[in-house]
Simulated scan of single mutants.
Amino acid sequence: MPLDLEEQEQLDQLKAFWQKYRNLITGVVTAALFAYAAYSGYQWWRTSQAAIASQLYETMVVAINKGDKDQTLRAADDLQKQFSGTPYAAMSSLVAAKIASDAGDSAKAMDYLRWAAKNSSDQGYLALAKLRLTAQLIEQGSEKDFAEADTILKEKSVAGFEALWLERRGDWYLAQKNIAEARKSYEAAWVQLNQAKEFPEEARRLLKVKLDAVGGVAQ
């Protein structure tokens, strides 16, 4: 059926529009397809990485149950090197730090904690690594250790860990016999801890002991 004049005019306009903008339209569509393909590929890669990392972490758990310290630490090292972007890498580093510490190798334990504190993709593990690292630095107690702990504690707390950050700052002051500042930090931590009901009761009991030791009042 022949087109009427108005339809023919619309068709001509469409052809003219396509001739003028077809390269741009084709480019945008192609870019969108590439972006989607890249995103899909990345999601597949992440899932694949996590699956392999979980298997390696299971190997580490088996080694722990066997009491094989060397194999446990090797698995943690492999997770750091090959799967640093997965939560398993930080989780295994925290476990390896505990095992190294129990074996009397504090330097190696702190290496694992420093790695997790810098590289963890999971905010919870990141916070735990920083808190455990600062605790060990405070315990070692050299001027350099206090300075490193101070630098970490000056960073913004990971959300949800504000109370523990304040408590660790109190520990930092107390180790340097600054009782007044330690009390302030512990009291501030106590307020935060009571607002964060998800923390276990043991955390409150431990903080109360610290508060009592510096003459604070925990209610």
Rank of each mutant, 00 (worst) to 15 (best):
V95N: 06
F34E: 04
A16M: 10
G104Y: 00
R74F: 09
G141M: 02
Q71R: 12
S142D: 02
E181K: 13
K15F: 12
A129M: 09
Y36H: 09
P2A: 14
A89D: 04
G124H: 02
V217M: 13
L128V: 11
A76R: 07
I152Y: 03
L79K: 04
G215D: 01
R132E: 04
M60K: 05
D122E: 11
E162A: 13
D68A: 11
E202A: 13
D12F: 08
V29N: 08
L137R: 01
S93H: 00
G85E: 08
D78T: 14
A117W: 00
E202L: 10
A51T: 13
L133Q: 00
G41E: 06
A89S: 11
Y57P: 03
L153W: 01
A35E: 04
S40V: 11
Q71Y: 07
A182Y: 04
A180N: 05
S121H: 03
W45S: 10
E201I: 13
G215T: 03
Q8R: 01
D102M: 07
A213E: 12
Q55T: 15
A116L: 04
A50V: 12
D122L: 12
K144W: 00
T134R: 02
N23M: 08
T134V: 13
F17H: 09
E162T: 14
I52L: 13
R22N: 15
M91H: 07
L211K: 06
L128H: 00
E143Q: 06
S40T: 11
V191A: 02
E181R: 09
D145E: 11
K156F: 03
I52A: 12
G41M: 03
Q10T: 04
A188T: 01
K20N: 02
M91W: 03
V191Y: 01
N65W: 05
L56S: 12
V217C: 06
G124Q: 07
A203C: 01
Y21N: 15
V28H: 05
S120N: 09
G170H: 00
T30C: 15
N65E: 14
E201S: 12
D111L: 05
G124R: 03
E181A: 14
L164K: 07
K177G: 07
L5C: 09
T30Q: 04
